[in-house]
Deep mutational scan, measured.
Amino acid sequence: AVTGSQTALLLRAFEKDRFPGIAAREELARETGLPESRIQIWFQNRR
């Protein structure tokens, strides 16, 4: 499950760019500790 702090970080990124590229998703994966594929799905679901 995604924690509150991970969600906050993802929401901030989403406000800046609703369609992040692979580099941005990989950076978010490093920052959150989540797999990049999970980040991609999160953005798809959020849109």
Rank of each mutant, 00 (worst) to 15 (best):
V2M: 15
F14D: 02
Q44R: 08
Q40R: 14
E15V: 07
F19Y: 13
E15R: 09
A24M: 12
N45R: 09
A8Y: 08
L9Q: 09
R38H: 12
E31M: 14
R12F: 06
E31S: 11
E15I: 09
E27L: 12
S5W: 15
S37F: 13
K16Y: 08
V2I: 15
G21N: 13
G33M: 04
F43K: 00
A29Y: 02
L10D: 02
A1F: 13
L34E: 02
L11H: 05
P35A: 10
T32F: 02
G33T: 02
R12Q: 12
F14S: 01
R18S: 09
E31K: 12
A1P: 12
I39W: 01
R18D: 05
Q44F: 07
P20E: 01
T32P: 00
P35I: 04
P20I: 04
E15G: 06
R38Y: 15
E26H: 11
L28P: 00
A24D: 08
P20Y: 02
F14N: 00
A23K: 13
L28Q: 00
R47S: 05
I22L: 14
R12V: 09
A24R: 11
T32L: 09
G4M: 14
E27M: 12
V2L: 15
F19G: 01
Q44E: 15
A8N: 09
A29E: 03
A1I: 13
T32A: 04
T3K: 06
F14K: 02
E36F: 05
I22S: 10
A29R: 03
F19P: 01
S37V: 10
R18K: 12
G33R: 03
G4V: 14
E31Q: 15
R46H: 12
G33W: 02
L10N: 00
D17M: 06
R25P: 01
A24T: 09
N45Y: 08
R47W: 06
A13Q: 04
T3I: 05
T32Q: 00
I39N: 01
Q44Y: 09
A1C: 15
S5I: 13
L28Y: 03
Q44N: 08
G4Q: 14
Q40C: 13
A13H: 10
L28K: 00
R30N: 06
N45C: 13
V2E: 08
L34S: 00
A23E: 13
K16P: 01
G33V: 02
F19R: 04
R30W: 06
T7W: 15
V2F: 15
N45D: 13
T3C: 10
Q6N: 06
E27P: 01
K16N: 10
R47A: 05
Q6K: 05
I39S: 01
A29I: 04
F19V: 04
G4E: 15
T32E: 00
D17F: 05
I22W: 09
V2R: 04
G33P: 00
L34D: 01
Q44I: 09
E15P: 00
I39P: 00
E27D: 09
T7E: 15
W42I: 01
S5G: 10
F14M: 03
R46S: 07
A29H: 03
W42K: 00
G21E: 06
P35T: 14
G33K: 05
Q6S: 05
I22E: 11
D17K: 03
D17P: 00
L10V: 00
I22N: 08
A24K: 10
L9V: 14
Q6L: 08
L11T: 10
I41R: 09
A29N: 03
A8Q: 11
A8D: 11
A29G: 05
T3A: 05
P35E: 09
I41E: 15
L11K: 08
E15M: 11
D17L: 04
E26A: 12
F19N: 10
I41L: 12
R12I: 12
I22Y: 11
R18Y: 04
E31F: 07
V2Q: 05
I39E: 02
V2K: 04
R46I: 09
R47V: 09
E36S: 07
R18C: 09
F43S: 00
L9C: 09
I22T: 10
Q6T: 07
L28C: 02
F19A: 05
N45E: 15
V2Y: 13
E15A: 11
F14Y: 12
V2C: 03
P35R: 04
E26G: 06
Q6C: 07
R25V: 15
A23D: 10
P20M: 03
A13N: 03
R47I: 09
A23F: 08
D17G: 04
L34M: 06
P35H: 09
I39M: 01
L10H: 01
R47M: 07
E36A: 11
I39Q: 00
E15W: 09
R46D: 02
R47Q: 07
Q44D: 11
A13M: 07
R12M: 11
Q44L: 06
R12Y: 06
S37C: 12
G4C: 15
R25F: 14
A23S: 10
A1M: 13
I22A: 13
D17V: 04
L11N: 10
P20W: 03
R46L: 11
R30H: 06
F19D: 07
E31N: 08
R18P: 15
E36C: 05
P20K: 00
P35K: 06
A23Q: 12
G33E: 02
P20C: 04
N45F: 07
Q6G: 03
E31I: 14
G33Q: 04
S37W: 15
L11R: 07
R46P: 02
Q44S: 08
K16R: 11
R30S: 05
R46Q: 15
D17E: 08
A23V: 10
R25D: 01
E31A: 14
T7R: 14
P20G: 02
A13W: 11
T32R: 01
G4A: 15
G33S: 03
F19I: 05
G4P: 15
T3D: 09
A8H: 08
Q6M: 10
R30Y: 06
R30D: 04
R38W: 15
T32M: 04
E31V: 14
Q44M: 08
D17A: 05
I41K: 10
A1D: 13
P35Y: 03
